[in-house]
Each structure stands twice: as structure tokens, then as C-alpha cells.
Amino acid sequence: MNNIFVYCEIEDGIIGDVSLELLTKGRSLANKLNCKLEAVVIGANLKGIESQVFPYGVDVLHVADDARLYPYTSLPHTSILINLFKQEKPQIALMGATSIGRDLGPRVSSALFSGLTADCTSLEIGDHEDKKEGKSYKDLLYQIRPAFGGNIVATIINPDQRPQMATVREGVMKKEILDANYKGEIKQIDVKKFVNNTDFVVEVIERHMEKSKVNLKGASIIVAGGYGMGSKENFQMLYDLASVIGAEVGASRAAVDGGFAEHERQIGQTGVTVRPKLYIACGISGQIQHIAGMQESSVIIAINTDPNAPINTIADYVITGSVEEVVPKLIKYYKKNSK
């Protein structure tokens, strides 16, 4: 009872990275709280699935295995979680901020009247003093995320409602096997007890999943462009630079919204989190939501016409100048010196 639950997503029999990252985080929170880590996998043909999750330190694995549960649809997965949570009373429930987690999480939180914080960039355990009410709380989940505008980070708590729910994007937490031989207990969920036939009102008629072309998480060098690139045409110079130095191209949200780059290239709180060896920020101002996704890069170069752009404070090299001038020069001198 009152353990930490992680909802694990599954695609083609493989548990998603984001879920394994959350299991890793969940394990360390469970150690702090001295409770168990439990995982939930909902899908079809799940025989042997435990071998993918136990190594992350999972004590109990709840499995709901039914042909109708894959691919994911909102209502059956929601019903299972709601009923399971009512029964098991977790204190914390985590899921990926993915197209599944962001569909499922809000629905579950609404039914249980438990708060849900989206896109957390950090999760910690801490106490809280409500001076007005004269109440004190021990060991709450601090759900930490950048807040709208400005360089502020908000710590959100759910003092009174359980579970405390949060979603986290892929790449934000680190994935680490605890012990390859770790063994937990498997509990089969009685699907018929938890799911109504009326939950199957959404029918998946067609489905095309593609492997992503963009691999930002695995890139050792990233050239990222912001709104300061000015146009989609200008953005092309970043692909040129990237192909010359062997980098992947990323973007700020303003650049994505401006149509300069695809959404899957977005870096930041609501995009991908990256930790490359080298990050070249071109025409990016450096708002907190962007920095949240790249500040752990080993070396940062900022190219900006504004000598006081916020990104400069975290950069190792600050080049004050326009991208139109600097980027072609980077290409030119790299070519010259790599011969």
C-alpha cells in the first residue's frame, strides 16, 4: 500500500524508454520513502514482459493482458488504472509525457480527483508547512517544472489528494539498470473485473508507426536554431553545418511554431532533453523552457546578435554576431582545418 506506481507504455512488445527512465527515478524515490516500486503494463501478449522491467528495481509488476488492450485506447487503460489505484492506493503515480501518457494521465486524475503536473523536469521528496491552515506535511512529491514566462521554476505539490501524479518527457530522467537479476512479484489484473465492454467505444482502424528520423537524444553534437534564424530557408544553413561537422539539428519552440523546423526537433521542457558533447545555439534567446532541455550539454556555443541574450550566461563560448555571418564561417573554417 501507498507505494510508487509507474505506468509503462509498450509498443511492439517493447517497453518505452520513457517508462524505463521513470522506473529508474521511481526506484530512487521509493528508496527515499522506504516504500515499494510497482509497475503497470497494459497490453496484449505480455508473456515474459517482466524481464524488461524487473532489472530497474521493480518490486511488484501488475500485468493486464488482453487482446483488446493493444494498441492503446483511452477508456480501457483509464478504467484499469482507476480501479487499480482505488484498490492499491499509491502515494505517487508517474507516466511519460507522451501521446499516451498525456491522454491517459488527465483522464485518470479527473476520475480520482488527484492533481496532475505535466512535463516535470525534476521530482524530489520534501516537506511542506501550510501556515494558514496550520498543517504540516511530510514527504510530499515536489513536482518541479519551469513556469510560464521568465526565468522561474515552480514547485507544485498535491498536499491532500492521492496519488500525486506527474508526467515527465522522454530523456529528462536517466535510465539505469539497478540489478540485472532483480526479481519482483507478478500480479495478473483481472481485466474483466476492471474494464467494461462499453469502454471499447474507440476503435483503431488504421495505424502507422514510424521510426523517428531525428535522433537528438543520441547525437553527440547538436546545432540548434531559434526564431533568430528568421526563416525556413535560412534554417537550411544549420543542416549544412550539421552535415559538415556530423551533428543533428534541433530547434527552439519559437522556431518550430514559426514553421522553420519539425516538431520532433524541439528541444526543451516540452520537447526533447539532450546532453550532447557540444551544443551550438543559433539565434536562440535562452528562455528557461529551452534551457531546461539542454543545460547539461558539456560545451555550449551561443551565437546571438544580442550580447545580453540570456543563453549567454550558460554558454562556454559567446559569439556576438548574426547567424548569417557566423554559421557560414564555421563551415568554412571547419572545412579548411579538417583537411
Binding site: 513556469a147 526565468n151 515552480a154 507544485i156 505539490i157 491532500d160 550566461t313 556576438t320
Partner: peptide, 24 residues
């Protein structure tokens, strides 16, 4: 159910950065 416990301005660990211009 969710409350904002606190809001902090983040002070990024300002790095010792090298300042350059666009000169060749």
C-alpha cells in the same frame, strides 16, 4: 488539488564564458 508551493527564479550557474566576435 495541485498547489504552487513556491516559485523560484533560477540562477543558472553562470559560466566563465569566452567572448568572441564574428571576425574571421
Amino acid at each position: 488539488p495541485t498547489k504552487v508551493k513556491n516559485i523560484e527564479s533560477v540562477v543558472f550557474q553562470a559560466k566563465e564564458s569566452k567572448k568572441l566576435t564574428a571576425a574571421d
